[in-house]
């Protein structure tokens, strides 16, 4: 477990700085940096900021998953593919990736579910998702109990169903073919 080389800074940084901080940073800071670079004023819409923020934050996690998947295919296979005269890219595409992707799938599904849960945070920069609507309605109605309980149960059910569904789908894909 501890034979893995130390992470390069890029993988460590989005993992380690909190998600919400990443989100706010993209929403507030990125337009300013781009604006300074271009010499004009740029505004990202909250949707774009949310997508970029979540994407950047999860790219760090996913790169770790991909790295683990690629490392799990033994290096002898690459070597023998190379000795057969395949180019590096062909060996990667034909030999390593088909096996690596199948091993990455369960973890990638976990990441997807986790990403889905993190999307609740985008309500903080006024993207109108479920939590945003719920907090708006409960402010208007002054009755938080049923609304928040309902939202919690809704998320719980949707995520459990989605997890089951993804596991079924990827199970079939993992069993098919060479793996």
């Amino acid at each position: 477990m501890h034979s893995v080389p130390p992470d390069p800074g890029w993988t460590a940084s989005p993992i380690c700085s909190g998600l919400i901080c990443g989100r706010h940073r993209v929403y507030f800071v990125l337009p300013l940096i781009i604006g300074t670079a271009l010499g004009t004023k740029v505004n990202l819409s909250p949707h774009v900021a949310a997508v970029i923020g979540l994407g950047v934050a999860y790219s760090g996690f996913l790169s770790e998953t991909v790295r683990a998947g690629l490392r799990s295919v033994s290096y002898g296979q690459t070597e023998s593919a190379l000795s057969l005269g395949m180019s590096g890219f062909t060996a990667l595409r034909r030999i390593v990736l088909p096996q690596a992707v199948r091993r990455m799938l369960p973890e990638a599904v976990n990441q997807l579910v986790s990403l889905f849960k993190s999307t609740t945070i985008v309500s903080l920069i006024a993207v109108q998702d479920i939590m945003y609507q719920v907090s708006m309605i409960s402010v208007a109605e002054m009755r938080p109990v049923p609304l928040y309980t309902g939202a919690a149960l809704l998320y719980c059910i949707v995520i459990i169903l989605a997890t089951q569904l993804f596991q079924r789908l990827t199970e079939r894909w993992r069993r098919r073919g060479w793996a």
């Binding site: 939590m131 719920v134 928040y148």
Partner: peptide
């Protein structure tokens, strides 16, 4: 299962208000 399948923001608001 409930704890794992509910997002942290939802739980936070749920615990805080409900």
């Amino acid at each position: 299962e409930f704890c794992r399948a509910t997002p942290i923001l939802v739980q936070l608001l749920w615990v805080n208000y409900v």
